[in-house]
Amino acid sequence: MTGFPLPAFPLPAFLAGFGLSVVAVVVLLAVVFAVAVAQKRHSVIDTAWGLGFVVVAAVTFLASANDGDDGRRWLMLTLTAAWGLRLAVHIGWRARDGKEDPRYEDMLGDAPGSRNVYAIRRVYLPQGAVMLFVSLPVQVAMYAQGAVGWLGWLGAAVWLVGFAFETIGDAQLTAFKRNPANRGTVLDTGLWRYTRHPNYFGDAVVWTGLFLVAADSWPGVLTILSPALMYWALANKTGKPLTEERMGARPGYREYVANTSGFFPLPPKPGRGA
């Protein structure tokens, strides 16, 4: 027999664990929806976004106890939980004023019929589906066989770069907004000098790192579309475009767009387009 035999993978156990993840996400979003209705603001789901991945990682970690490699299971749980909890705390603190996010006001303002039912269809169900799909590298890796190899540790290093990038970027933006003198101006220093969205870029790199950890053992490489979807959403759909639409009228933002990379960090160059 030629070639290298693929490591065994406990597919029935994985499918059972995936079913548990679906149930966990549905329960989480149901709780979030109840809180949103009580507070009359559906933007609370943004805080639950990171928490959802933590829940999926925790459920899959427990479900895979007798199947996956313990080293990879702990690594995936630790990396996912660190990213998800930091993001949840950051967004929750940012939204502590209790006001509805303008994005959701625009989306739900002209809802046909019940605003809450419309929110379920347009916000909760899509986010739940995306959460389960994007988290596939985490779920698959929990059941993967064999010790973590060089590609897995490379993935952890890539994750660390992305985590540092988004954490530092968020901290710089928070400090910028805290200064009243900066009201109505554009942050173009620190990491924001090299990319207009260091937080979104960092998120994308984090999920690239998690994918590499999964790809270290079969069949993790098959989850490549999960980080690809995260990249596409952040750069072309729900991240960068919506933020820039909201910022477009701010004085100096057009010049900032012309001089600063739209997503991937690059040296600023006057006259360069987005």
Rank of each mutant, 00 (worst) to 15 (best):
256 Y>C: 01
217 S>Q: 15
233 A>G: 11
261 S>Q: 05
239 G>D: 05
218 W>T: 05
225 L>G: 03
244 E>A: 08
225 L>R: 01
240 K>R: 10
218 W>M: 06
242 L>V: 03
247 M>A: 07
216 D>I: 13
250 R>M: 11
247 M>R: 06
216 D>G: 07
245 E>P: 04
239 G>V: 05
240 K>H: 13
236 N>H: 13
218 W>L: 05
229 L>R: 03
220 G>D: 08
244 E>K: 06
239 G>P: 01
254 R>V: 11
233 A>L: 15
238 T>L: 13
242 L>C: 04
232 W>N: 07
218 W>N: 03
239 G>N: 06
222 L>N: 00
227 P>M: 05
253 Y>W: 14
233 A>P: 00
230 M>S: 10
242 L>K: 06
226 S>Y: 00
229 L>T: 02
219 P>I: 10
241 P>N: 06
233 A>T: 11
220 G>W: 06
262 G>M: 01
249 A>L: 07
227 P>T: 11
225 L>M: 06
240 K>E: 05
228 A>H: 02
215 A>T: 08
256 Y>S: 02
221 V>C: 00
245 E>N: 12
242 L>M: 03
260 T>E: 15
249 A>P: 04
260 T>S: 10
253 Y>P: 05
254 R>C: 01
223 T>E: 02
220 G>A: 09
237 K>E: 12
253 Y>E: 07
256 Y>A: 03
235 A>S: 15
258 A>S: 14
249 A>S: 15
261 S>M: 01
244 E>W: 05
261 S>D: 11
251 P>H: 08
232 W>L: 12
250 R>W: 02
251 P>N: 14
231 Y>C: 05
255 E>R: 11
221 V>F: 06
222 L>Q: 04
243 T>R: 08
238 T>V: 12
240 K>A: 15
230 M>E: 04
231 Y>R: 08
222 L>Y: 12
254 R>E: 14
215 A>M: 07
222 L>R: 06
237 K>L: 14
258 A>Y: 01
241 P>I: 14
260 T>M: 14
227 P>I: 09
259 N>P: 04
253 Y>S: 07
228 A>T: 13
260 T>P: 11
258 A>N: 10
235 A>H: 13
221 V>P: 00
231 Y>P: 10
228 A>S: 09
254 R>D: 11
225 L>S: 01
222 L>M: 15
262 G>Q: 00
217 S>W: 03
216 D>N: 10
261 S>W: 02
260 T>Y: 12
245 E>Q: 11
258 A>F: 03
230 M>Q: 10
220 G>M: 08
236 N>D: 14
225 L>A: 13
232 W>C: 10
252 G>Q: 05
215 A>G: 04
237 K>T: 15
217 S>C: 12
225 L>C: 07
227 P>N: 08
223 T>R: 03
232 W>T: 12
260 T>L: 08
243 T>W: 04
252 G>C: 03
249 A>G: 14
254 R>K: 12
261 S>N: 08
235 A>K: 15
230 M>I: 09
238 T>G: 04
